[in-house]
Design a protein around this nucleic acid. Structure first.
Lengths: 201, 201
DNA sequence: ATGAAACATGAATCAATATTCATGTTTGAG
DNA sequence: CTCAAACATGAATATTGATTCATGTTTCAT
């Protein structure tokens, strides 16, 4: 990883890095990047402040590292889930991806917070994050369009429509209301998307 | 306004406050709240740093003030546009509101940036901002549902779907690509929404 | 025209906090 | 078992940047 100073070489080191990341993820989510002091992170991790700098060259790097890690994990989980599905109907894949997304975000509310903030903490990473997601979508959408499954709308914009829906629904349910959307609610959102997307609903 | 220390009482004062707000809006959008120093704002406004504190008790208040102002203006413009429309079909209103939204945001890219950041600068205002928008939508949606115009999906979630779409499409076009979406593109997005929403597309 | 209120100045203050570093302890390969 | 590399400590440093305030200038109602 490029944002990390030193890959731990012992069990103890690994454990310490893990504790730092866990604390940082929580704190960035709770208080935001700027309001979180390095001292907060090390306090919650149960280590001294200097130790932070053994692993990260500075505070910003830890933020970038987390963003990379979490985004990676999320994409991996979604990809894995989709590969298990025998069907390759875009809408079925999408339903699965959506469920995974909500599950992951509710378990890692830090990801959500971190990405949201990154537009100003580190604009480069922010753009990269969404464009990476978008380009995955674009492929799927184009394939499905070739098969005549979904309507011939601009794939790039469609991908942002989908991401927008998921992100804002997650905002409402997980952040504002503090609960996961029910299956019933997810089904309704999916139904909205299905009709919008499909050639013959 | 509750975030302002002193309403200007002379022409000069008014002009100064205006310059401060303009500079702050630009800078919060360009560099973000935390990276913007009060000195940056006063420098761009062409005044001395102490003057800032004649109008605002502190930096955070200026942020809240802008967020309130801009959100208010945006809602007012959308409302005004919608009132001019004779039809009260939800979809036609929505098409108009969407166009207004993109126009406003492209002229006030600061609003977008400010709201996006507020989740961590001032979470209270953040939630208030979106819930205010949402509740306006909920009314419209419920009316349209009574008329049988749109499908009986959960109005609160639908409102967040719509806001998500607009926000993310604006993110892609205005922030990432630096250009307004074309009429053709807006039409496609609207078509996606129309099919998702309408009882009989 | 005039003076009290409004407005403007910018150097000085002061608190907050990211980062360093000299010193000590622990780990694990050989 | 041993010791070099890894890891940990936390007080001290250094910088940054919000806010204050004593002093001056401008406005405008009368």
């Amino acid at each position: 990883m490029e944002y990390i100073k030193q890959q731990p070489k012992t069990k103890r080191g690994e454990e310490t890095l893990r504790k730092i990341c866990e604390a940082a993820e929580q704190l960035f989510a709770e208080k935001g990047y700027y309001a979180t002091e390095v001292a907060d992170i090390t306090r919650r991790a149960g280590i001294s402040s200097g130790t932070f700098y053994i692993y990260f060259p500075d505070k910003l790097s830890s933020f970038r590292y987390l963003m990379d890690e979490l985004g990676h994990e999320l994409r991996k989980e979604i990809r894995a889930a989709k590969e298990e599905l025998p069907s390759n109907s875009m809408i079925e894949l999408e339903a699965l991806g959506m469920r995974k997304f909500f599950r992951f975000v509710s378990e890692h509310i830090g990801l959500f917070a971190i990405v949201w903030q990154s537009q100003f903490v580190d604009p480069e990473s922010f753009k990269k994050y969404y464009e990476r997601f978008s380009s995955g979508y674009i492929n799927e959408i184009q394939e499905a369009q070739k098969r005549g499954e979904i309507r011939p709308l601009n794939p790039a914009y469609l991908s942002y429509c989908l991401m927008g829906i998921y992100n804002f629904v997650a905002l409402k349910s997980l952040v504002f209301d503090g609960k996961e959307p029910s299956d019933e609610e997810l089904e309704q959102i999916l139904s909205f998307i299905r009709r919008g997307l499909l050639e013959k609903p």
